[in-house]
């Protein structure tokens, strides 16, 4: 479950919100389902806009690489749009997702390309996320069984839920198991670990630098570490977020993908 997936997961947000409204919580103890639903709801809005700086580390490179981008998303009809703004080499590269389809635009070739299934496992722009991470339609709320396996104190007060997520039978998921650590003060995720079916940890995401953004308290730094490739790391810094804004539907079009005015 990568970062993009979180932005772009299907209609799970609605379900999560409905759940949260329909079953108001009394008392202190929450169920695992509620913890995950609240965390998921925090990271998403009905619609969203965000500016992100991505930094990639690879021990074979002479230094880290940076990408800057902005992204629009509407959860309801599962549409999203990403435009890379920096550096010059990648500037203007765009991605458009509508439902299960993903298109890419490369300004150097002035061509829109539909990303074929064989490229889904490839790295997204050299990062530790794959195109599949962007595309994946699974939801941590809907497609997994949740179980609280530990409850600990947080240094700054409040509790940290450690929740184990196991895929439901026939759910369209890649992972065999996910572990998340959620801080009950605002249901902020702290850490997430993804495991293969064999039980081997594949990657780990650390959330930090909680900040007030877009009217919510959110972790602004997301750090993805590969467990199979030592030293490979991708950092996301969210510099700006707006939730529940009106997004012109013209944004999610091939014409806009090819546009030079942005």
């Amino acid at each position: 479950m990568g970062f993009m997936k979180k932005f772009w997961a299907g209609g799970s947000c609605l379900i999560a919100l409905t759940l949260a409204l329909a079953f108001p919580v009394f008392g202190q103890m929450l169920t695992a389902d509620e913890v995950v639903a609240k965390m998921d709801a925090l990271l998403r809005g009905e619609t969203s806009y965000m500016k992100v700086k991505m930094t990639m580390y690879n021990p074979d490179w002479s230094g880290p690489r940076e990408l800057e981008m902005f992204a629009y998303e509407t959860v309801k009809d599962s549409r999203s749009f990403i435009r890379i703004t920096e550096p010059a080499r990648e500037r203007g590269t765009g991605f458009l997702k509508i439902g299960y389809n993903l298109w890419m635009y490369m300004p150097a070739a002035e061509k829109v390309m539909k990303i074929p299934p064989s490229m889904m496992r490839d790295s997204w722009m050299g990062s530790d996320f794959s195109n599949d991470d962007l595309m994946h339609e699974s939801s941590i709320v809907r497609d997994y069984e949740h179980k609280i396996i530990n409850l600990a104190d947080h240094q700054q007060g409040g509790k940290v839920y450690q929740v184990e997520l196991l895929p439901k039978p026939n759910a369209p998921v890649v992972w065999g198991k996910i572990l998340v650590w959620v801080w009950d003060q605002g249901f902020i995720p702290l850490k997430e670990q993804n495991f293969e079916e064999s039980g081997k940890m594949v990657d780990e995401m650390i959330f930090s630098e909680v900040r007030e953004m877009g009217g919510r308290k959110l972790p602004s730094k997301w750090e993805m570490r590969s467990m199979t490739k030592p030293g490979h790391k991708t950092e996301l810094l969210i510099t700006e977020v707006k939730f529940d804004i009106d997004i012109n539907s013209g944004i999610f079009t091939e014409k806009n993908l090819k546009s030079k005015n942005w």
Partner: peptide, 11 residues
């Protein structure tokens, strides 16, 4: 994918 694993396109 170019030397950095990033997507690149050319005609």
């Amino acid at each position: 994918q170019d030397a950095y694993g990033s997507m690149a396109a050319i005609n």
